[in-house]
Design a protein around this nucleic acid. Structure first.
Lengths: 125, 125
DNA sequence: CATTCATATGAACAATTATTCATATGTTTA
DNA sequence: TAAACATATGAATAATTGTTCATATGAATG
């Protein structure tokens, strides 16, 4: 069955729906940007990495201190720091035997701040 | 081995590091908030859900239209809408046989906007 | 220059999760 | 009220991912 030359597959007023399709198409970023974005948010979607970021909010820190503060193995922390660095959320510098990590930019702060606000609102309602 | 009554497990100047520990402890949110936060970001960390949100940026949309626009099964979309709703990022209303979904609040927009900015900067550098 | 210390990394395993398929629920209409 | 339509949901499967363990790298030190 057809209406106005468009295939109708579900729902009633499909004329409106095709207008919608045209309106929306072009506004949704392409597959690559969507994929990059979701990869970025995946990085925030882990407790260990979030804790690391919260520590880095306060101070530049070396790996072994992170491990101690968060009470986790050096290896686990190191793996997660690699993920954080790959997504350019943190940078590091060497100082002797230690490697110090710090925040790469301020988007981290604002993204996390917005997330916290959203959660706070849930509590209120 | 000990220094100033503190156990030394790694790194050299551990006196400084213990000051760090006190500075940081109390600034890192408790386990529950960290967990809630990472759960929220996990929701953003999936291409399908991001696409759904981008469509909802433009318009309130019913499930079958989302499925058609994103070229996915109704079931897949429905499962993801459930996730989005549980984290209070979207709301819905019934209109006859259809159920229309829309954005729940504006944190969604700002979180995604910040994410996009971060990615854009990568490209520049 | 061999040892120690700090960090990184690869492989393996367990846990989580997105999609599919089949089917259930709930609404409208003939 | 039976049939058709729109959406939801449970179980199963495949893919992804976080941690651990063992080990490698790279810098300092005696």
């Amino acid at each position: 069955m057809e209406k106005n030359g468009y295939e109708v597959e579900c729902c009633e007023e499909h004329i409106i729906h095709n207008e919608l399709l045209q309106k929306v198409d072009g506004k949704v970023p392409d597959e690559e940007e969507i994929s990059d974005l979701s990869d970025l948010f995946k990085v925030f979607g882990d407790s260990t990495r979030l804790k690391i970021l919260f520590v880095l909010f306060e101070s530049e820190v070396c790996v072994c201190d992170l491990a101690e503060i968060l009470n986790m193995t050096q290896s686990a922390i190191s793996h997660q720091l690699k993920v954080l660095k790959q997504s350019k959320l943190v940078t590091n510098r060497r100082e002797g035997k230690s490697i110090f990590y710090s925040l790469a930019d301020d988007h981290v702060r604002s993204i996390i701040a917005q997330g916290r606000e959203h959660i706070e609102e849930d509590v209120k309602k």
